[in-house]
Amino acid sequence: MNQAEWYPQINQDRCISCGDCITQCPEDALGQQNGKAALVYPERCAYCSHCEDICPSNAIELPFLIVMKHHKREGV
C-alpha cells in the first residue's frame, strides 16, 4: 500500500486559504503551497484529524481502513 494514500487529502479546489489548519495543526505538519494548504511535512502527521474537523470548507479528508481486531495487521 502506498503510504502517501494514508495522509490527509487536501482538496485544493475547496481550500479557501484561511490558514486555520496550518496554525492549529498540533504537529506543524501543514504549510502553504501556491497559496493553498498543503501537507508539507507528512512524516510529522499524527493522524489526529484535527485539520479535518476544523476546516470550514470541508477541504481536508482522512482516509480510513476498516478492519476486524483479528485482521488488524492485514491490508497495509
Binding site: L62, V67, H71
Partner: peptide, 14 residues
C-alpha cells in the same frame, strides 16, 4: 469488513 476490498484510501468520514 465483510468485503475488505471496499475499505482503504478514499473511505473518509466525508
Amino acid at each position: 469488513t465483510e468485503n475488505p476490498n471496499l475499505s482503504g484510501p478514499g473511505i473518509t468520514r466525508t
